[in-house]
Design a protein around this nucleic acid. Structure first.
Length: 723
DNA sequence: CGTCTTTGTCATTCA
DNA sequence: TATGAATGACAAAGA
């Protein structure tokens, strides 16, 4: 949140500084007063709470606790973490900040001088520095991840908002050619660390779900470059090599987004029908020109406002009259270097700063101000963003608050809190403390399971899983009463294991990690000798007696310990208990054998008893681990469900915030542009000029027709906008 | 009586 | 190599 604000604020501040240098006052506070989205997490990655854990390191350390490598809980721990991270990777916004950059290829209208004709430092800047959003619509953005392809861009320039007819371009070209109106406004210089451009790019980076995200580098690049070559009119603008590093994006992400997009498209229809009638955002300007007027002025059909699936990667434009948005023409660096050179805009009527936002179209930012020169401020028809509503309606259906409340380790208070968060429209519910991804959360679940079985009925199920508590209660309640209504098999397993729970107190991990492997030892030790002597009862009688004398531990233990091996040992007159045979260390066991004169038959039986006894414990442990693994997996599933719900909520919030940010940027642009005055104090015509962002962070007021005027009188293009 | 679960045991592998 | 742990497979016992 703060970082986002910082980013954006810095950009705006720079922009403001720039404007202040030219005599324009901008009140940044107006644009930063509202809640800002945690774009930093969107852009720079998740916060620490969501940072993926390096399991191979954790396996060694695991928060400082030494855990047996074969511990069930350790495996569960990592399995849960891994699964959770997988879920997280699916749902979380993976927004590498470096993957999006200026991709748009400069395209000149047919009438524009081709790249080969360019000369001199004048650079055909097809970049998307122009701020107007031409074609981007929210619908296209939302469909971006789906099947929207670059070719969906409407080739008919008249259809797209802000599209420039070739005639217009030609006119401007001629005009520029004649009088060299190109004006370079300012350059913030290389010292600018963060420019509005970067902000815009950051905003752009917040939408990796477009085509570029779902198609790979190679395909995108090929699609980007191939049309460029085949378009003769394309100026020297070259596709900037955008480091698309989305290859690691899980395929499920696409699947999920496609699901979303499928829903979005349904509402896109509605949006198309209502786009024209949407109220305009007059937040930053007082020009109350109607939306219809704007649309009309742009010569844009309502449908075109929406159906233009334009992304930054649609650099390969058909040689149409459309103004294609390109951002940050790389040639600006190549030819002009750091020098603030006059940049030539390929687009005439409509610059395309909104293209910086790719195909997101979330807000239809930067409507092309093709208004007359008197009113530079174009109204801002804000297309209703169905994204949020769709998310809320469709995606939140997956959120089951009941599941959240029922989850172990997730108290009702927490569930209610989460529910409140989910219900809240405002504010971001990024409470990382709830994140199961964090070790604390997972461990909390485990610890609660291990240590609070008897504390709350809510956690009774977990308590049955916990070893120490079950053992503790078992000591209080000798029989199955310890587990209450829980599944008996669990109680049995837990009762058999960890007879000495005191050694596991305090540390949840240790409680579940250190295997005692003394299932029978503590129980049998006090009575083992006696059991050997009193093992005469038949098995049926023993069972009945067990049932009748359930609350008599001695008899129970006696009966329990009367195993076949014990009877064999008794039959063979083995002079010591099976417990000793099984549990004595090797040295003591050998000493014990040496102390007695035993024949081979007895020795063989003793070794078998020892082997079988140890194996029995091992089998019990093994089964217990299996069971624990299953239970932990269940818990992991529940945690992941909760994470999924949270991530969905977060994503929805992110999208909301991004939309708001875009709107603010749009408003800022329009306000700034409206306050610009030429030497004669007249406002610039939005149809003729647009603010461009250079790769070095500079903001330039560029004549739109300059893009068609390449290489002519570049010296005049150095005109500084500063006033 | 058949089925399912639990438990013990064996064989095997691995550390 | 000896020992023990782990585990799949099987069978017996019991519900």
């Amino acid at each position: 949140m703060l970082y986002l604000k910082k980013y954006f604020t810095e950009g705006l501040i720079q922009f403001t500084i720039l404007l202040s240098l030219i005599g324009v006052r901008v009140d940044l506070d107006t644009y930063l007063n509202n809640q800002l989205p945690p774009l930093r997490e969107i852009i720079l990655g998740p916060s620490s709470a969501y940072t993926q854990t390096q399991f191979h390191n954790l396996r060694n350390t695991l928060d400082g606790y030494g855990i047996h490598p074969k511990s069930v809980d350790l495996d569960h721990f990592f399995a849960t973490r891994r699964l959770l991270n997988q879920v997280r990777s699916l749902d979380h916004l993976r927004l590498p900040s470096t993957e999006l950059s200026a991709w748009l290829v400069h395209r000149d209208p047919e009438t524009v001088v081709s790249a080969t004709s360019q000369s001199g430092p004048s650079i055909a800047l097809d970049n998307g520095g122009s701020l107007e959003d031409v074609n981007n619509s929210e619908a296209s953005a939302m469909r971006g991840a789906g099947g929207a392809t670059e070719t969906t861009y409407s080739p008919s320039g008249e259809d797209s908002l802000g599209a420039v007819a070739p005639e217009d371009i030609q006119e401007q070209t001629d005009r520029d050619t004649s009088d060299d109106l190109s004006k370079e406004l300012t350059s913030l210089g290389a010292q600018t660390s963060l420019s509005l451009q970067e902000c815009l790019r950051l905003l752009e980076a917040t939408f990796p779900f477009g085509e570029e995200s779902e198609f790979q580098n190679s395909s995108s690049t090929s699609q980007l470059t191939a049309p460029t070559e085949e378009t003769p009119s394309t100026s020297q603008g070259l596709p900037i090599q955008a480091p698309l590093s989305q290859s690691d994006t899980p395929l499920d992400l696409e699947q999920q987004w496609q699901d979303i997009m499928s829903i979005m498209e349904l509402q896109d229809m509605d949006v198309n029908n209502t786009a024209v009638n949407t109220t305009m955002n007059n937040e930053s300007n007082n020009n109350n020109a109607s939306t219809t007027e704007s649309a009309t002025s742009f010569g844009v059909l309502p449908s075109s406002l929406i159906n233009q699936d334009v992304s930054l990667h649609q650099a390969s434009l058909p040689s149409c009259s459309q103004d294609f948005p390109t951002l940050f023409n790389p040639e600006l660096d190549s030819t002009g270097g750091q020098q603030p050179t006059l940049v030539r805009l390929s687009s005439s009527n409509s610059s395309n700063i909104n293209s910086t936002f790719g195909a997101t179209n979330l807000t239809g930012l930067f409507f092309t101000p093709t208004l007359n020169s008197s009113t530079n401020l174009s109204t801002t028809p804000v297309l209703p963003d169905p994204f949020t509503s769709l998310l809320e309606e469709s995606m939140l259906d997956e959120i089951s608050l009941l599941d959240l409340a029922m989850e172990e380790g997730f108290s009702q208070a927490q569930a209610s809190q989460l529910e409140d968060e989910l219900d809240s429209d405002s504010g971001l519910s990024l409470d990382s403390s709830h994140s199961p991804a964090s070790p604390s959360n997972s461990e909390t679940s485990c610890s609660s399971a291990a240590s609070s079985s008897s504390t709350s009925a809510t956690f009774s199920e977990e308590g049955a899983v916990g070893y120490s508590t079950d053992s503790e209660t078992a000591t209080v309640e000798p029989e199955e009463g310890a587990v209450g209504g829980y599944q008996p098999e669990y109680s049995k397993l837990c009762r058999m294991s960890y007879q000495d729970p005191s050694q596991f107190h305090g540390i949840p991990q240790l409680e579940s990690v250190n295997h005692n492997h003394t299932y029978n030892l503590p129980l049998s030790s006090p009575y083992s000798e006696h059991s050997e002597l009193s093992a005469s009862s038949s098995k049926k009688g023993r069972d009945k007696q067990m049932q009748q004398t359930k609350l008599q531990p001695p008899q129970d233990f006696i009966d329990r310990q009367t195993s076949r091996d014990e009877r064999r040992a008794r039959a063979m007159d083995i002079p010591f208990s099976n417990e000793k045979i099984i549990n004595l260390p090797v040295e003591e066991f050998n000493e014990l054998l040496a102390k007695h004169n035993l024949n081979e038959e007895q020795l063989s039986l003793i070794r078998d008893i020892r082997r079988r006894g140890k194996n029995k414990m091992a089998a019990q442990n093994c089964r217990k681990r299996k069971l624990d693994t299953i239970l932990n997996l269940e818990h992991g599933v529940q945690d992941m469900r909760r994470d999924k719900a949270r991530l969905l909520k977060e994503r929805m919030e992110f999208i909301k915030c991004i939309r708001q940010m875009k709107q603010k940027v749009q408003n800022l642009y329009q306000e700034v542009f409206a306050q610009l005055r030429d030497e004669e104090g007249r406002p610039y015509s939005a149809s003729e000029y647009s603010l461009q962002y250079g790769p070095d962070g500079s903001v330039l007021l560029m004549p739109r027709s300059m893009t068609t005027e390449q290489g002519h009188k570049p010296e005049k293009k150095q005109k500084d906008k500063k006033k």
